[in-house]
Nucleic acid binder design. Structure first.
Length: 1075
RNA sequence: GGGCUUAUAGCUCAGACGGUUAGAGCGCGCGCCUGAUAAGCGCGAGGUCUCUGGUUCGACUCCAGAUAAGCCCA
């Protein structure tokens, strides 16, 4: 016996029971142990941040990973599922700063780095519990108790080892990076922070004249909105292909872009004296506007961070740059490498000096004598006056534009070159591109599109962050000789280092230093106290202050999750590269890149083979989900109400995971009703009747006996095995949506066709081979469907499986997740039968339409259905499956006709697909002729002669499409090829039969209203018109059998359940009583 | 500003290779069927396949441009 399926339930509650079962019986662990010896399938978990509660997009990512891992497990792979946590980085620092009301570095240092770091550690796992609960509740099987954590010493040590590899390959170097910088907070800002603080402001807009060397009275006209960067100017850029002119203006010669001349001199156009192409200007030298840089170079050390170290030949000359536009300005762009990334890059390209005359606090250095100590933006007016006084200013206006301000303190940001550490990824670019070719991307366009482009345009990875909470950059610099060294392990650090007794003092290896403890915490500020002895000069080395980009942390996951190479040497060879990763598309430049970059750097192999790229989830209104819009969805409301399976199924089937999805709760309800409801109904139908049948269906576990199968059974099994094939194929190529949709289509067929047409085989029929076959088939199909859907709806699938299999078979695995995935049995597939069934269903569907049009209800039998337009083969198919047509349409006989005209209108059209290539242009002429001629006689000619003469062309039947449309006034339904027509005459006999079916229907309804059990036998009495009695007499056996009536009495007993009904207009009083 | 993606019914989505009646589900209205139902079946309404050009005998499909939305980068 199976466990009864209660009609009162919610999926969400059932899922909790299943979770308990999994927990109690350690099903996840068992599923791993079961496949320990199988070939591994390597899954690499992208570590989430647990400092915010999980949202629906996290659910999406986790269930996609889960379905793939479950599928691979069930198909015989060992899938190690190590969880991970990302823990470092600015977001954490910001949250803690906010919490502590800290607004800048000075306040932070005053609070104490040590205290701050401890707060960060707490903050990172603020929502870990919630993540755990969510992960478990949605059925994501991952080992959270053996997670890799990027803040652990082991992890950091591995990351250090990776950095050391880069160092040894000379791929780790120090340079400069221009970054948005708040000089009040003393902090660079991340892009998203910059975006927070844009304001519309008025800035100076000035046109400055740079005197050309060796050309009397000739000037380069340059436009800028940041006068304060002019003292740091080192070059002027032009567009090589642009046209430039020299014009005479108020006694001076000015050079600017030809195209901008009208804009520049709105009123009177000056006279053009000479024309140049941009490239002709390259290499021209000009006089710097100020000489502060020269002073700074020879001045006191340290006051100018990066003065003119060696004035290159190129300094103060004209260079080419492709970012020069002709939209604004003069087509001549002032270049100050310290204050713009574009400028910096140009500086690197041409070997220009880096002139930096602004101190980190945003004021001019002492060498800029007139404005020393003044905030640079405040100095703008002074600079303008100065230039005007020297006759170097053509024009000064105000300019309204968007400028970024610090979102915390409202100070205007400066783009400012900071010392920075880089990974020379450009050196491994070609390898990365090659490795990218070996990765299967889903969707495919990522490979050449977004990701490929990103790699093509690769620049060196800016690795360092001037922050606190992160993996410390393990580079130490000698205070004495400047020698640098990268540490690659704790052991190495211990061997060569000590803990400084007073870290604030750069001191020699003195007596007060102590050895590094075994359990040294690798974070700042602890590691900052470590001093090394310089191998070159014996001096003291101190660690550079920076921490590294947290993307580098997670990018090392393939290696650092194992604490490789310090432990688990064997794991790396087994688990690299990963077979499968999946994250959202915003990881293209994030984790997808960082994994590939580190993997290429270390092993010269791609880090992963298959990458399932998820799109972001939009709110129901199509807008981005955000707290401020109030359109976010809390996964828990869904998990508690509709349940995890419904949410999962919705996400698998609604649209491909790489398509943008508007997240709709109605969609989840639909998944619940349409798929889960349907599957559950078939299941409960089976359980209900199987339990009534009792022991006679115990044999179902042996599977259906082939010789006993009906056509419907064979069809269903064929559909099942075709579906298995489809699902496997789609899953192998990570098309989870196609796979799950195939299952959904199968379940729809199972319920709406197989069960619908086979009900009486389960109910009421005598025991025998056919009944046994029906039970065995449905049982087999349900169990297989449970396995097939297990990766997608693990809860429902397991519930079905456990009841269906667990109740009968003690030998079988206790959970569907310990079973093997179904394999298609080719011998059970019958493509012809499937096609035939589809065709007959189409005919039946048209019959339904015709009946509908006639207004005669289906319970009323009709004598004949005429079908036209079928080929011989199609006729044979209908005849073969005629039983279904009879049953569905309630007609006594089926006939075929060739006479289209009686029922349908015929039109002839060329078969474009065949004739198009053959006759080209003439196809349209043929179509016209066929359309205008009398179709009926053409059809007659075609039928008689086997061909048709159209103009000069002779057409064969294959070259012509005969199309039909139903004629109005007939109970006929037609599609392009065929039609069905219904004989609507109701004879006396048919009328009686119709009444008999009415009686059955009403009695059944009465039983239901009276709340009888399905198997209860009844006593029946009937008082009605003579016609109804005649029908009752004529079909008594049928009526009694269908309604389980064992006794018919003249007048009802007192306690009988009675009702007056109208049967096709005939009145009848029906009474039923349980016996 | 650059790169990538998307645009088909009120909503969510299918539509290999270009072939002439563009489909499904949901929703809506009407009818039917039903002792499996959180069902099912049928009919109806609902589409200038975002727009404009081009290639072609023929374009939802290929090409170019535009518009809108989204993501990433600047």
């Amino acid at each position: 016996m199976f466990e009864e399926v209660s009609p009162q339930f919610t999926f969400a509650d059932r899922e909790k029971a299943t979770l308990d079962f999994w927990r109690e019986h350690h099903i996840f662990q068992k599923s791993m142990e079961l496949h320990k010896a199988d070939p591994p399938f390597v899954f690499l978990e992208g570590p989430p941040f647990a400092n915010a509660p999980p949202g629906v997009h996290h659910v999406l990512a986790r269930i996609m990973k889960d379905a793939v891992c479950r599928y691979k497990t069930m198909t015989g792979h060992y899938v190690h599922r190590k969880a991970g946590w990302d823990t470092h980085g600015l977001p954490v620092e910001y949250q803690v700063e906010k919490q502590l009301n800290i607004t800048n570095k000075a306040e932070l240092e005053a609070y104490g780095v040590q205290n701050f770091i401890e707060k960060c550690k707490e903050n990172v796992f603020q929502y870990e519990q919630e993540w755990r609960l969510m992960t478990e509740r949605i059925g994501f099987w991952v080992n959270l108790d053996d997670a890799y954590i990027t803040l652990s010493n082991d992890y950091i040590e591995s990351v250090w080892w990776v950095l050391r590899q880069a160092w040894d390959k000379e791929l780790l170097y120090q340079g400069h990076k221009v970054q948005p910088y708040c000089c009040r907070c003393g902090t660079t800002l991340a892009t998203h922070e910059v975006a927070l603080g844009y304001k519309t402001v008025e800035d100076p807009s000035i046109y400055v004249q740079f005197p050309i060397k060796n050309k009397e009275n000739t000037y380069l006209l340059v436009w800028t909105t940041t006068p304060w960067t002019l003292p740091s100017n080192v070059a002027i850029a032009v567009g090589e292909d642009y046209d430039y002119v020299c014009v005479e203006h108020e006694g001076q010669n000015l050079i600017l872009a030809a195209e901008l001349l009208p804009k520049m001199f709105a009123e009177e156009q000056p006279r053009v004296t000479t024309r140049y192409k941009g490239h002709e200007l390259l290499g021209w030298h000009y006089e710097p506007l100020f000489d502060f840089a020269e002073t700074a170079q020879s001045g006191a050390r340290g006051t100018v961070p990066h003065a003119l170290a060696s004035a290159s030949e190129r300094a103060y000359s004209i260079v080419a740059a492709d970012f020069v536009t002709l939209e604004d300005g003069t087509g001549l762009v002032h270049i100050a490498p310290a204050f713009g990334q574009d400028d910096y890059d140009i500086g690197q390209k041409y070997g220009l000096p880096l002139v930096q005359l602004v101190a980190p606090d945003g004021t001019f250095v002492t060498e800029v004598a007139p404005w020393a100590g003044e905030f640079v933006k405040d100095a703008d007016s002074g600079i303008i006056e100065n230039l005007a006084g020297r006759g170097l200013l053509l024009k000064a206006d105000e300019y309204t534009h968007e400028y970024p301000f610090c979102w915390r303190c409202d100070t205007p940001l400066l783009y400012y070159a900071r010392e920075s550490w880089f990974i020379r990824t450009t050196a491994i670019r070609e390898q990365m591109l090659q490795h990218n070719q070996q990765i299967n991307w889903y969707p495919e366009h990522i490979k050449e599109g977004r990701f490929g482009n990103w790699l093509e345009n690769n620049v060196d990875w800016g690795l360092s962050r001037e922050r606190y909470w992160g993996t410390p950059l393990p580079v130490w610099t000698c205070n004495t000789c400047g020698n640098q060294h990268c540490i690659g392990s704790i052991a190495e650090m211990k061997e060569h280092g000590q803990m400084a007794a007073d870290a604030s003092v750069a001191q020699g290896p003195g007596t007060r230093n102590v050895p590094i403890p075994d359990d040294i915490e690798l974070h700042r500020p602890y590691v900052d106290d470590v001093i090394l002895t310089c191998k070159k000069c014996g001096g003291t080395m101190q660690r550079v202050q920076d921490v590294i980009d947290c993307w580098f942390d997670s990018g090392c996951a393939h290696t650092a999750q194992w604490h490789y190479p310090f432990e688990n040497q064997d794991m790396l060879t087994q688990a690299y590269p990963a077979d499968f990763i999946s994250e959202a598309i915003d990881q293209t430049r994030g984790w997808f890149y960082s994994l590939l970059a580190t993997g290429t750097l270390l092993y010269d192999k791609p880090a992963y083979k298959n990458c399932l790229c998820l799109e972001l989830i939009m709110a129901a209104d199509g807008q981005k989900m955000s707290k401020s819009r109030g359109n976010t969805v809390d996964p828990w409301t869904i998990l508690n109400e509709q349940g995890a399976d419904a949410m999962r199924w919705y996400m698998f089937t609604a649209c491909p995971p790489w398509a943008q999805r508007a997240f709709k709760l109605e969609g989840i309800d639909e998944a619940l009703k349409k798929f889960m409801g349907t599957l559950h109904n078939v299941y409960s139908f089976f359980v209900m009747y199987a339990n009534i049948e009792g022991s006679s269906v115990q044999s179902v576990t042996q599977g259906p006996a082939p010789h006993e199968l009906s056509l419907m059974d064979k069809w269903l099994l064929s559909r099942l095995h075709t579906t298995i094939d489809t699902v496997r194929t789609e899953m192998e190529s990570y098309h989870l949506t196609n796979a799950s949709r195939a299952i959904e289509a199968f379940i729809a067929d199972l319920s709406n066709w197989y069960v619908r047409r086979s009900r009486d085989r389960f109910w009421g029929a005598e025991s025998g081979p056919d009944k046994r076959a029906a039970y065995a088939t449905l049982y087999e199909v349900l169990v297989t469907a449970a396995k097939l859907s297990a990766p997608f709806v693990p809860f429902l699938a397991d519930e079905l499986y456990r009841n269906l299999v667990g109740s009968l078979d003690d030998e079988a695995p206790v959970s569907v997740h310990l079973a093997l995935y179904p394999v298609a049995d080719e011998t059970l597939k019958d493509a012809q039968l499937e096609a035939d069934m589809a065709f007959v269903r189409e005919v039946i569907s048209m019959g339904h339409a015709a009946r509908n049009r006639s207004g005669i209800k289906t319970r009323q039998p009709l004598s004949e259905l005429t079908i036209g337009g079928l080929s011989e083969g199609q006729q044979a198919t209908v005849t073969y499956l005629a039983e279904l047509v009879h049953a569905e349409l309630n007609v006594k006989s089926i006939s075929f006709t060739k006479d289209m005209n009686a029922f349908a209108q015929v039109t002839l059209k060329p078969n474009f697909k065949v004739l198009g290539p053959k006759y080209g242009k003439n196809v349209q002429a043929i179509a016209k002729t066929l359309a205008t001629a009398d179709a009926t006689s053409l059809k007659a000619e075609l039928d008689a002669t086997g061909s048709l003469q159209v103009g000069t062309f002779t057409l064969t039947p294959e070259e012509i499409d005969v199309q039909t449309q139903h004629r109005e006034g007939f109970f006929v339904e037609a599609d392009a090829q065929k039609f069905v027509a219904l004989a609507t005459e109701v004879t006396h006999e048919l009328k009686l039969e119709g009444l008999a079916r009415e009686l059955v229907n009403k009695i059944q309804n009465l039983r239901k209203t009276a709340d009888f059990n399905v198997a209860d036998r009844i006593q029946l009495s009937l008082t009605a018109t003579s016609l109804v009695h005649e029908a009752f007499e004529a079909h008594q056996d049928y009526i009694l059998r269908e309604t389980l009536t064992t006794e018919v009495v003249e007048s009802p007993r007192e306690n009988a359940f009675s009702r007056v009904e109208s049967l096709n207009g005939e009145e009848a009083t029906l009474s039923v009583l349980r016996v």
